[in-house]
C-alpha cells in the first residue's frame, strides 16, 4: 500500500512512518501542505494521512487541491485526517469531505493502524 503521510511534528512523522512500514506499507512523508500537494499531483497514493493543522496551510486546503486529481468518492476513501483539535467545527468541516478523522493522541494505536491500513470503506 502506498501511503503519503503529511505531518509537521517530526517525531510523530518519523514514528508513524516506521510503524506503517512495519505493517508493510510504502510511506512517503511531507511536513508541508504545499509540498504535499505537489507530491499528490506527481504520485499515486492509495492512502493519504493528513494532519489538519499544518505550518503553511490546512489539511482541508490539501484536500481541496486534490480535487483536481480525485473524485469525491475517491477522496472519501483515500484521505484520513488527523487532528489534535476535535472541536465540533472541525468535525463538521471534515464531514463535508466525507473522510475519516482520527484524533491525536491515539488512545488505541492498533485500532488506528487498522484504520490507516484499511483497504475497503
Amino acid at each position: 500500500m502506498k501511503i503519503l503521510l503529511i505531518e509537521d511534528e517530526i517525531l510523530i512523522q518519523k514514528s508513524l512512518k516506521k510503524i506503517l512500514e512495519r505493517a508493510g506499507a510504502t510511506v512517503s512523508v511531507s511536513s508541508s501542505g504545499k509540498e504535499a500537494i505537489l507530491l499528490i499531483n506527481q504520485g499515486s497514493f492509495d492512502r493519504i494521512i493528513c494532519d489538519i493543522m499544518l505550518q503553511d496551510i490546512t489539511g482541508f486546503d490539501v484536500i481541496e487541491e486534490s480535487k483536481r486529481k480525485y473524485e469525491t468518492e475517491e477522496i472519501k476513501k483515500i484521505f484520513i485526517l488527523m487532528t489534535a483539535y476535535t472541536s465540533p467545527q472541525v468535525i463538521d468541516a471534515a464531514s463535508k469531505y466525507g473522510c475519516k478523522i482520527v484524533s491525536k493522541p491515539f488512545d488505541d494505536l492498533e485500532k488506528i493502524m487498522n484504520i490507516f491500513m484499511s483497504t475497503n470503506d
Partner: peptide, 17 residues
C-alpha cells in the same frame, strides 16, 4: 493544551517505536 499535546504525543510514539 493543544500546543503541548502534539510534541508529547510525538515523544511517546517514538519512544514506543
Amino acid at each position: 493544551k493543544h500546543e503541548l499535546s502534539n510534541p508529547l504525543f510525538g515523544l511517546k510514539l517514538m519512544a514506543d517505536v
